[in-house]
Simulated assay, not measured.
Amino acid sequence: MSRGLPGPLVFGVECCYGKYWSDKRPRLCTITVSHYCEKVRWALDAGKIDYTEDAHPPGFHMSWAQKASPDGKTSTPLLKDAGTESKALQESTQILEYLAKQYPSRLGWLFPSDLSAEQQALKAELMEKLDQSLGVEIRAIIYSFCLLEPEGKGETLLAETLKKNTLWGEKIFMGLVMPKVWVLMRKAMQISEEKLAERLETLNSVVSRLDEVLSDGRKFLLGTDHPTVLDITAASLAYPLVTPPQMGEVSMSMECMQPVPRAVEFCEEYRKRPFGFWVLKMYKDYRGATVSLPLLKEFPPSAGEGQGEGEGVVGAPEPLGEEGGDAYKVQICWTGKK
């Protein structure tokens, strides 16, 4: 039995969606707010790659990810390419490497081949700090601010954020199980004031190093004339640090964070630092005016949309226009087949 959702619910959802993983375009399974998932979304959108994203709250992603994973793993992001089981990948940098090889004319710039030895050493150093320290600590810090906020204000903010752009059935079920989820999160993430202080210190150390790298005024972290995988990794993993306006549709905005004052102060502080300012500029200049996710529409279709009961078919991508940048929204139509 699949993990992550109760058996009957898994069965019902799979019946509704039929051949869930049979779509012939790349399919990205995500936790909506995950900064590691945002890293892959950024690359896919930058390469103008036609893909489908299936976004879920934490925990609810597990059944979907396990279904496609060749190893039965439940982590996200997970990219399954063009209906080929062997190409289900579950590590963000590995996914970007794969995409750069599959679409060299669109994404080859992520991995330039002419880096000097000094640039390669800097890339290795910073990639490790970003993936193993900054990304991990930021996630735990934001959850800590929310779960340590008195009177449940932070829990309410988290619940509303984690539901964004997810399936309607998951939103309903999530509302029923969240009290237990908060207990599990506090235990799994070791949420406490003491641990929070340690994490803030670790984060400050990593950001100080990034501030130092940017102190010579370079536009990109390796001193190249275009972004590389290091820049996409740094900007996406650090988005919760500064809450770029472009991510408000997916995650928390500065406005909605007001019930958690410590989180607001945290973001305001890091926005003033060189690295924080750089992240905001990367989003402004290279991520587009808004972030529009190509999500599955809710099942069943609203009145007037469908043509009777039948198998869901993913239609052609619809460009979102100037505000959507390079993103695409995938439309779901219904064939009426029985």
Score class of each variant (00 low, 15 high):
residue 9 L to K: 08
residue 11 F to D: 13
residue 16 C to I: 10
residue 17 Y to R: 14
residue 18 G to E: 12
residue 22 S to F: 09
residue 24 K to W: 05
residue 24 K to D: 15
residue 24 K to M: 14
residue 28 L to F: 01
residue 28 L to W: 05
residue 29 C to P: 01
residue 33 V to E: 00
residue 34 S to D: 04
residue 36 Y to Q: 02
residue 42 W to M: 05
residue 43 A to I: 04
residue 45 D to N: 15
residue 45 D to W: 11
residue 46 A to W: 05
residue 48 K to A: 13
residue 49 I to W: 07
residue 54 D to I: 07
residue 55 A to R: 05
residue 55 A to M: 12
residue 56 H to T: 06
residue 60 F to T: 00
residue 66 Q to T: 08
residue 70 P to A: 07
residue 71 D to F: 11
residue 72 G to D: 08
residue 74 T to D: 01
residue 78 L to D: 00
residue 80 K to I: 10
residue 80 K to A: 10
residue 82 A to E: 15
residue 86 S to M: 09
residue 90 Q to D: 11
residue 91 E to G: 15
residue 92 S to D: 05
residue 94 Q to M: 15
residue 95 I to A: 06
residue 100 A to G: 13
residue 103 Y to R: 11
residue 105 S to M: 10
residue 108 G to F: 09
residue 108 G to W: 04
residue 109 W to L: 10
residue 109 W to V: 03
residue 115 L to W: 01
residue 118 E to Y: 05
residue 118 E to C: 07
residue 121 A to V: 12
residue 122 L to I: 13
residue 125 E to R: 13
residue 128 E to D: 08
residue 128 E to F: 09
residue 130 L to K: 02
residue 131 D to V: 10
residue 131 D to P: 00
residue 135 G to M: 12
residue 137 E to M: 02
residue 139 R to D: 00
residue 140 A to M: 04
residue 143 Y to W: 14
residue 145 F to Y: 14
residue 152 G to C: 14
residue 156 T to G: 06
residue 159 A to G: 01
residue 160 E to M: 02
residue 166 T to Y: 03
residue 166 T to N: 01
residue 166 T to C: 04
residue 167 L to Q: 14
residue 173 F to P: 01
residue 175 G to Q: 00
residue 175 G to Y: 04
residue 176 L to E: 06
residue 177 V to W: 01
residue 177 V to E: 02
residue 177 V to Y: 00
residue 177 V to M: 04
residue 184 L to D: 13
residue 184 L to K: 15
residue 191 I to H: 01
residue 192 S to V: 11
residue 194 E to W: 06
residue 196 L to F: 08
residue 202 T to D: 03
residue 205 S to Y: 10
residue 207 V to L: 13
residue 208 S to R: 12
residue 209 R to H: 09
residue 210 L to N: 02
residue 210 L to G: 02
residue 213 V to S: 04
residue 214 L to R: 08
residue 215 S to K: 13
residue 218 R to Q: 14
residue 219 K to I: 14
residue 220 F to H: 14
residue 222 L to R: 06
residue 224 T to D: 09
residue 227 P to D: 04
residue 228 T to E: 09
residue 229 V to Y: 06
residue 230 L to P: 00
residue 231 D to H: 15
residue 232 I to T: 12
residue 235 A to Q: 02
residue 236 S to W: 02
residue 238 A to S: 15
residue 245 P to W: 04
residue 249 E to T: 15
residue 254 M to P: 02
residue 254 M to K: 13
residue 258 Q to M: 11
residue 260 V to W: 00
residue 265 E to D: 09
residue 265 E to I: 03
residue 266 F to V: 04
residue 266 F to S: 06
residue 266 F to C: 03
residue 269 E to P: 07
residue 272 K to P: 10
residue 274 P to D: 06
residue 277 F to T: 08
residue 287 R to F: 11
residue 291 V to W: 07
residue 315 G to F: 08
residue 318 E to C: 12
residue 322 E to H: 12
residue 325 G to L: 02
residue 327 A to K: 08
residue 331 Q to I: 14
residue 331 Q to Y: 15
residue 334 W to A: 07
